[in-house]
Simulated assay, not measured.
Amino acid sequence: MPTPVIRGRLLVVLAALVIATGLLVGPVAGQSDGATGGTIVIEADETVDDVDALAGNVIVRGTVTGDVSAAAGNVEVEDGGEVGGDLEAMAGNVDIAGSVDGSVSAAGGNLVVTETGSVGGTLDAAAGTARLDGTIDGDVRLAAETITLGEGAQLEGDLRYAGTLEGNEEAVAGTIVEESPVDVTPTLQPVASWLFAVYAFVMNLLLGAVLLGLFPRFSRTVADDVATMPIRAGLAGLGVLVGVPILLAAIAITVIGIPITVLGAVAFVFAIWVGVVYGRFAVAAWLLSSADLENPWLALVVGLAGAVVLGQVPIVGDPLNLLIALLGLGALAIGLYRRLRSRHESADERPPSAVE
Protein backbone atom coordinates (compact mmCIF):
# COMPACT_ATOMS: atom_id res chain seq x y z
CA MET A 1 0.00 0.00 0.00
CA PRO A 2 1.36 3.46 -0.83
CA THR A 3 2.10 5.69 2.13
CA PRO A 4 -0.15 8.74 2.72
CA VAL A 5 2.66 11.01 1.47
CA ILE A 6 3.05 9.06 -1.78
CA ARG A 7 -0.72 8.91 -2.25
CA GLY A 8 -0.87 12.66 -1.74
CA ARG A 9 1.83 13.26 -4.32
CA LEU A 10 0.09 11.02 -6.82
CA LEU A 11 -3.18 12.89 -6.30
CA VAL A 12 -1.39 16.20 -6.85
CA VAL A 13 0.13 14.91 -10.09
CA LEU A 14 -3.22 13.52 -11.24
CA ALA A 15 -4.94 16.83 -10.53
CA ALA A 16 -2.25 18.69 -12.46
CA LEU A 17 -2.63 16.32 -15.40
CA VAL A 18 -6.38 16.83 -15.43
CA ILE A 19 -5.98 20.62 -15.33
CA ALA A 20 -3.36 20.59 -18.09
CA THR A 21 -5.45 18.25 -20.23
CA GLY A 22 -8.31 20.68 -19.84
CA LEU A 23 -6.22 23.28 -21.63
CA LEU A 24 -6.38 21.12 -24.73
CA VAL A 25 -10.08 21.67 -25.25
CA GLY A 26 -10.00 25.45 -25.04
CA PRO A 27 -12.75 27.61 -23.62
CA VAL A 28 -15.65 25.60 -25.01
CA ALA A 29 -17.61 22.65 -23.75
CA GLY A 30 -16.36 19.32 -24.99
CA GLN A 31 -17.72 15.84 -24.89
CA SER A 32 -15.63 12.72 -25.06
CA ASP A 33 -16.35 10.06 -27.63
CA GLY A 34 -13.44 7.84 -26.67
CA ALA A 35 -11.21 9.11 -29.47
CA THR A 36 -7.71 10.34 -28.74
CA GLY A 37 -8.05 13.91 -27.55
CA GLY A 38 -11.84 13.66 -27.45
CA THR A 39 -14.40 15.56 -29.48
CA ILE A 40 -15.35 19.19 -29.13
CA VAL A 41 -18.87 19.96 -30.33
CA ILE A 42 -20.61 23.31 -30.57
CA GLU A 43 -24.20 22.11 -30.56
CA ALA A 44 -26.92 23.56 -32.78
CA ASP A 45 -28.47 25.56 -29.93
CA GLU A 46 -25.12 26.73 -28.55
CA THR A 47 -23.27 30.03 -29.06
CA VAL A 48 -19.66 30.64 -28.03
CA ASP A 49 -17.21 33.47 -28.58
CA ASP A 50 -14.09 31.69 -29.86
CA VAL A 51 -12.75 28.18 -30.20
CA ASP A 52 -9.08 27.26 -29.67
CA ALA A 53 -8.68 23.52 -29.60
CA LEU A 54 -6.45 20.49 -29.89
CA ALA A 55 -8.70 17.48 -30.18
CA GLY A 56 -9.63 14.36 -32.09
CA ASN A 57 -12.56 16.13 -33.72
CA VAL A 58 -13.86 19.70 -33.73
CA ILE A 59 -17.46 20.02 -34.91
CA VAL A 60 -19.41 23.28 -35.24
CA ARG A 61 -23.18 22.77 -35.44
CA GLY A 62 -24.09 25.99 -33.67
CA THR A 63 -22.65 29.49 -33.69
CA VAL A 64 -19.13 30.72 -33.04
CA THR A 65 -19.26 34.50 -33.04
CA GLY A 66 -15.46 34.84 -33.26
CA ASP A 67 -12.63 32.77 -34.70
CA VAL A 68 -12.01 29.02 -34.75
CA SER A 69 -8.40 27.83 -34.45
CA ALA A 70 -8.14 24.08 -34.37
CA ALA A 71 -5.70 21.22 -34.78
CA ALA A 72 -7.56 17.94 -34.96
CA GLY A 73 -8.17 14.75 -36.85
CA ASN A 74 -11.30 16.30 -38.35
CA VAL A 75 -12.58 19.88 -38.39
CA GLU A 76 -16.19 20.26 -39.54
CA VAL A 77 -18.53 23.20 -39.89
CA GLU A 78 -21.78 21.37 -40.44
CA ASP A 79 -24.78 22.58 -42.47
CA GLY A 80 -26.41 25.20 -40.26
CA GLY A 81 -23.21 25.86 -38.33
CA GLU A 82 -21.77 29.37 -38.44
CA VAL A 83 -18.34 30.85 -37.76
CA GLY A 84 -18.53 34.62 -37.49
CA GLY A 85 -14.78 35.17 -37.76
CA ASP A 86 -11.92 33.30 -39.40
CA LEU A 87 -11.31 29.54 -39.51
CA GLU A 88 -7.73 28.31 -39.08
CA ALA A 89 -7.38 24.54 -39.19
CA MET A 90 -4.77 21.83 -39.31
CA ALA A 91 -6.51 18.50 -39.73
CA GLY A 92 -6.74 15.28 -41.63
CA ASN A 93 -10.07 16.46 -43.02
CA VAL A 94 -11.51 19.99 -43.19
CA ASP A 95 -15.19 19.98 -44.15
CA ILE A 96 -17.16 23.23 -44.54
CA ALA A 97 -20.88 22.65 -45.04
CA GLY A 98 -21.98 25.70 -43.05
CA SER A 99 -20.88 29.33 -43.25
CA VAL A 100 -17.59 31.00 -42.40
CA ASP A 101 -18.04 34.75 -42.51
CA GLY A 102 -14.30 35.48 -42.42
CA SER A 103 -11.37 33.84 -44.19
CA VAL A 104 -10.22 30.23 -44.13
CA SER A 105 -6.61 29.07 -43.70
CA ALA A 106 -6.27 25.29 -43.76
CA ALA A 107 -3.74 22.52 -44.06
CA GLY A 108 -4.86 18.93 -44.21
CA GLY A 109 -5.29 15.72 -46.10
CA ASN A 110 -8.67 16.64 -47.59
CA LEU A 111 -10.51 19.95 -47.93
CA VAL A 112 -14.19 20.11 -48.89
CA VAL A 113 -16.53 23.08 -49.24
CA THR A 114 -19.94 21.55 -49.94
CA GLU A 115 -22.85 23.06 -51.89
CA THR A 116 -24.29 24.47 -48.67
CA GLY A 117 -20.92 25.81 -47.53
CA SER A 118 -19.78 29.40 -47.90
CA VAL A 119 -16.69 31.46 -47.12
CA GLY A 120 -17.07 35.22 -46.82
CA GLY A 121 -13.37 36.01 -47.15
CA THR A 122 -10.39 34.40 -48.82
CA LEU A 123 -9.51 30.71 -48.87
CA ASP A 124 -5.84 29.71 -48.50
CA ALA A 125 -5.09 26.02 -48.19
CA ALA A 126 -2.67 23.19 -48.76
CA ALA A 127 -4.19 19.73 -48.98
CA GLY A 128 -3.87 16.33 -50.57
CA THR A 129 -7.20 16.78 -52.35
CA ALA A 130 -9.58 19.72 -52.46
CA ARG A 131 -13.19 19.92 -53.67
CA LEU A 132 -15.07 23.21 -53.89
CA ASP A 133 -18.84 23.07 -54.41
CA GLY A 134 -19.91 26.11 -52.37
CA THR A 135 -19.55 29.89 -52.50
CA ILE A 136 -16.29 31.73 -51.79
CA ASP A 137 -16.46 35.52 -51.93
CA GLY A 138 -12.73 36.24 -51.83
CA ASP A 139 -9.68 35.01 -53.69
CA VAL A 140 -8.66 31.36 -53.51
CA ARG A 141 -5.10 30.05 -53.23
CA LEU A 142 -4.84 26.27 -53.28
CA ALA A 143 -1.99 23.80 -53.38
CA ALA A 144 -3.24 20.23 -53.78
CA GLU A 145 -2.62 17.14 -55.83
CA THR A 146 -6.18 17.30 -57.18
CA ILE A 147 -8.49 20.34 -57.13
CA THR A 148 -12.09 19.77 -58.20
CA LEU A 149 -14.59 22.56 -58.89
CA GLY A 150 -18.12 21.21 -58.58
CA GLU A 151 -21.20 22.31 -60.51
CA GLY A 152 -22.44 24.28 -57.52
CA ALA A 153 -19.17 26.11 -56.98
CA GLN A 154 -19.12 29.90 -57.11
CA LEU A 155 -15.75 31.65 -56.73
CA GLU A 156 -16.17 35.43 -56.83
CA GLY A 157 -12.44 36.25 -56.85
CA ASP A 158 -9.31 34.90 -58.50
CA LEU A 159 -8.06 31.33 -58.30
CA ARG A 160 -4.34 30.67 -57.94
CA TYR A 161 -3.49 27.02 -57.72
CA ALA A 162 -0.81 24.38 -57.87
CA GLY A 163 -1.76 20.83 -58.80
CA THR A 164 -4.30 19.31 -61.17
CA LEU A 165 -7.44 21.42 -61.71
CA GLU A 166 -10.61 19.60 -62.71
CA GLY A 167 -14.30 20.40 -63.12
CA ASN A 168 -16.30 23.58 -63.59
CA GLU A 169 -13.75 26.30 -64.33
CA GLU A 170 -16.58 28.64 -65.34
CA ALA A 171 -17.41 28.89 -61.63
CA VAL A 172 -14.44 31.27 -61.24
CA ALA A 173 -15.51 34.89 -61.77
CA GLY A 174 -11.95 36.21 -61.70
CA THR A 175 -8.80 34.92 -63.33
CA ILE A 176 -7.35 31.45 -63.05
CA VAL A 177 -3.59 31.34 -62.62
CA GLU A 178 -1.56 28.16 -62.32
CA GLU A 179 1.52 28.59 -60.19
CA SER A 180 3.97 26.04 -58.96
CA PRO A 181 3.97 26.16 -56.10
CA VAL A 182 1.40 28.50 -54.58
CA ASP A 183 2.95 29.98 -51.46
CA VAL A 184 0.41 29.53 -48.65
CA THR A 185 3.04 29.56 -45.91
CA PRO A 186 2.35 33.10 -44.62
CA THR A 187 -1.34 32.31 -44.11
CA LEU A 188 -0.70 28.94 -42.46
CA GLN A 189 2.14 30.15 -40.25
CA PRO A 190 -0.19 31.53 -37.54
CA VAL A 191 -1.86 28.12 -37.26
CA ALA A 192 1.47 26.33 -36.99
CA SER A 193 2.91 28.76 -34.47
CA TRP A 194 -0.25 28.63 -32.37
CA LEU A 195 -0.25 24.84 -32.45
CA PHE A 196 3.40 24.60 -31.43
CA ALA A 197 3.04 27.15 -28.64
CA VAL A 198 0.03 25.41 -27.09
CA TYR A 199 1.55 21.95 -27.48
CA ALA A 200 4.89 22.99 -25.97
CA PHE A 201 3.24 24.79 -23.05
CA VAL A 202 0.98 21.85 -22.22
CA MET A 203 3.76 19.26 -22.48
CA ASN A 204 6.09 21.38 -20.34
CA LEU A 205 3.30 21.86 -17.81
CA LEU A 206 2.69 18.11 -17.65
CA LEU A 207 6.38 17.39 -17.12
CA GLY A 208 6.65 20.15 -14.52
CA ALA A 209 3.62 18.78 -12.66
CA VAL A 210 5.22 15.34 -12.50
CA LEU A 211 8.52 16.78 -11.26
CA LEU A 212 6.90 18.94 -8.58
CA GLY A 213 4.45 16.25 -7.54
CA LEU A 214 6.90 13.36 -7.24
CA PHE A 215 10.11 15.21 -6.34
CA PRO A 216 9.10 18.34 -4.40
CA ARG A 217 12.22 18.48 -2.21
CA PHE A 218 14.61 17.98 -5.12
CA SER A 219 12.70 20.58 -7.16
CA ARG A 220 13.06 23.11 -4.36
CA THR A 221 16.77 22.34 -4.18
CA VAL A 222 17.17 22.99 -7.91
CA ALA A 223 15.35 26.32 -7.55
CA ASP A 224 17.53 27.27 -4.57
CA ASP A 225 20.71 26.45 -6.49
CA VAL A 226 19.66 28.69 -9.38
CA ALA A 227 18.89 31.52 -6.97
CA THR A 228 22.00 31.20 -4.77
CA MET A 229 24.70 30.23 -7.28
CA PRO A 230 23.54 31.21 -10.78
CA ILE A 231 27.06 31.52 -12.23
CA ARG A 232 28.04 28.04 -11.09
CA ALA A 233 24.73 26.61 -12.34
CA GLY A 234 25.08 28.34 -15.71
CA LEU A 235 28.64 27.12 -16.20
CA ALA A 236 27.65 23.61 -15.20
CA GLY A 237 24.78 23.71 -17.70
CA LEU A 238 27.10 24.90 -20.46
CA GLY A 239 29.56 22.15 -19.59
CA VAL A 240 26.86 19.49 -19.77
CA LEU A 241 25.47 20.86 -23.02
CA VAL A 242 28.89 20.83 -24.69
CA GLY A 243 30.59 17.94 -22.91
CA VAL A 244 27.97 15.20 -23.09
CA PRO A 245 27.74 15.13 -26.93
CA ILE A 246 31.54 14.94 -27.12
CA LEU A 247 31.54 12.05 -24.65
CA LEU A 248 28.79 10.23 -26.56
CA ALA A 249 30.66 10.69 -29.84
CA ALA A 250 33.79 9.21 -28.27
CA ILE A 251 31.84 6.21 -26.99
CA ALA A 252 30.30 5.68 -30.44
CA ILE A 253 33.73 5.13 -32.02
CA THR A 254 33.61 1.50 -30.95
CA VAL A 255 30.89 -0.80 -32.30
CA ILE A 256 29.94 -1.95 -28.81
CA GLY A 257 29.49 1.67 -27.82
CA ILE A 258 26.82 2.45 -30.41
CA PRO A 259 23.86 1.12 -28.34
CA ILE A 260 25.21 3.01 -25.31
CA THR A 261 25.45 6.18 -27.39
CA VAL A 262 21.88 5.82 -28.65
CA LEU A 263 20.50 5.32 -25.13
CA GLY A 264 22.71 8.10 -23.84
CA ALA A 265 21.48 10.49 -26.52
CA VAL A 266 17.85 9.77 -25.60
CA ALA A 267 18.62 10.34 -21.93
CA PHE A 268 20.52 13.52 -22.77
CA VAL A 269 17.62 14.98 -24.76
CA PHE A 270 15.24 14.19 -21.90
CA ALA A 271 17.65 15.78 -19.42
CA ILE A 272 17.71 18.96 -21.53
CA TRP A 273 13.91 19.02 -21.49
CA VAL A 274 13.85 18.61 -17.72
CA GLY A 275 16.50 21.31 -17.41
CA VAL A 276 14.45 23.72 -19.53
CA VAL A 277 11.38 23.20 -17.34
CA TYR A 278 13.40 23.43 -14.12
CA GLY A 279 15.12 26.60 -15.32
CA ARG A 280 11.87 28.38 -16.05
CA PHE A 281 10.39 27.18 -12.78
CA ALA A 282 13.45 28.22 -10.79
CA VAL A 283 13.70 31.73 -12.24
CA ALA A 284 9.98 32.32 -11.68
CA ALA A 285 10.25 30.99 -8.11
CA TRP A 286 13.12 33.39 -7.42
CA LEU A 287 11.19 36.36 -8.85
CA LEU A 288 8.02 35.46 -6.95
CA SER A 289 9.94 35.02 -3.70
CA SER A 290 10.86 38.71 -3.85
CA ALA A 291 7.12 39.38 -3.62
CA ASP A 292 6.74 36.89 -0.73
CA LEU A 293 4.99 34.36 -2.96
CA GLU A 294 6.35 30.88 -2.27
CA ASN A 295 3.85 28.75 -4.21
CA PRO A 296 5.80 26.28 -6.44
CA TRP A 297 2.78 25.57 -8.65
CA LEU A 298 2.30 29.25 -9.33
CA ALA A 299 6.02 29.52 -10.11
CA LEU A 300 5.72 26.67 -12.61
CA VAL A 301 2.83 28.25 -14.50
CA VAL A 302 4.34 31.73 -14.38
CA GLY A 303 7.74 30.46 -15.53
CA LEU A 304 6.36 28.48 -18.47
CA ALA A 305 4.00 31.25 -19.55
CA GLY A 306 6.73 33.85 -19.16
CA ALA A 307 9.04 31.85 -21.42
CA VAL A 308 6.39 31.85 -24.15
CA VAL A 309 6.07 35.62 -23.89
CA LEU A 310 9.84 36.05 -23.71
CA GLY A 311 10.25 34.03 -26.90
CA GLN A 312 8.25 36.66 -28.77
CA VAL A 313 10.67 39.45 -27.81
CA PRO A 314 13.00 40.19 -30.75
CA ILE A 315 16.78 39.82 -30.42
CA VAL A 316 16.98 39.21 -26.65
CA GLY A 317 14.11 36.75 -26.14
CA ASP A 318 15.75 33.57 -27.45
CA PRO A 319 19.16 34.19 -25.82
CA LEU A 320 17.48 34.79 -22.45
CA ASN A 321 15.48 31.59 -22.79
CA LEU A 322 18.72 29.75 -23.61
CA LEU A 323 20.38 31.21 -20.52
CA ILE A 324 17.44 30.13 -18.36
CA ALA A 325 17.68 26.63 -19.84
CA LEU A 326 21.41 26.48 -19.03
CA LEU A 327 20.67 27.53 -15.43
CA GLY A 328 18.10 24.76 -15.10
CA LEU A 329 20.28 22.12 -16.74
CA GLY A 330 23.26 23.07 -14.58
CA ALA A 331 21.24 23.08 -11.36
CA LEU A 332 19.80 19.71 -12.33
CA ALA A 333 23.29 18.28 -12.92
CA ILE A 334 24.56 19.71 -9.62
CA GLY A 335 21.58 18.32 -7.73
CA LEU A 336 21.98 14.85 -9.22
CA TYR A 337 25.73 14.86 -8.51
CA ARG A 338 25.13 15.96 -4.93
CA ARG A 339 22.59 13.20 -4.42
CA LEU A 340 24.85 10.50 -5.91
CA ARG A 341 27.79 11.66 -3.79
CA SER A 342 25.62 11.62 -0.67
CA ARG A 343 24.52 8.06 -1.35
CA HIS A 344 28.10 7.00 -2.03
CA GLU A 345 29.31 8.53 1.23
CA SER A 346 26.48 6.87 3.13
CA ALA A 347 27.45 3.52 1.62
CA ASP A 348 31.10 4.03 2.65
CA GLU A 349 30.09 4.82 6.22
CA ARG A 350 27.90 1.74 6.49
CA PRO A 351 29.61 -1.00 8.63
CA PRO A 352 30.65 -4.11 6.73
CA SER A 353 28.38 -7.15 7.06
CA ALA A 354 29.55 -9.85 9.42
CA VAL A 355 31.06 -12.83 7.71
CA GLU A 356 29.66 -16.12 8.95
Rank of each mutant, 00 (worst) to 15 (best):
E78P: 00
I136F: 10
E115F: 11
A71G: 10
V64F: 10
D67I: 12
A107L: 00
E115C: 13
E76Y: 05
G84W: 02
G98Y: 03
A91R: 00
V113Y: 07
V68S: 09
A89W: 09
S103T: 11
V94H: 00
V94Y: 04
N110G: 05
A126M: 08
G98K: 00
V77C: 12
V112T: 14
T122G: 15
A89M: 07
V100K: 01
S99T: 12
A106W: 00
V100Q: 03
L123D: 01
I96P: 01
L87M: 12
E115I: 15
V113T: 06
G128K: 08
G120Q: 01
G121H: 13
A91I: 03
R131Y: 09
G92P: 11
G66Y: 04
G66M: 10
N93A: 08
D133E: 15
G84R: 08
G62I: 10
S69Y: 03
V64D: 05
D137C: 05
N93G: 10
D67R: 08
L132Y: 08
M90D: 09
V64C: 08
G92H: 10
D133K: 02
D137N: 14
D86S: 10
D79N: 14
G108H: 12
G81K: 13
V112F: 11
G80C: 09
D67W: 12
G102A: 09
N110Q: 07
S103A: 14
A107M: 13
V64P: 03
S99C: 02
G66W: 06
D124M: 06
G73T: 11
G98I: 00
A72N: 03
A72F: 01
D124A: 15
G85F: 09
D101H: 12
A70R: 04
E115D: 13
G84Q: 13
T65K: 15
T135Q: 14
D86W: 02
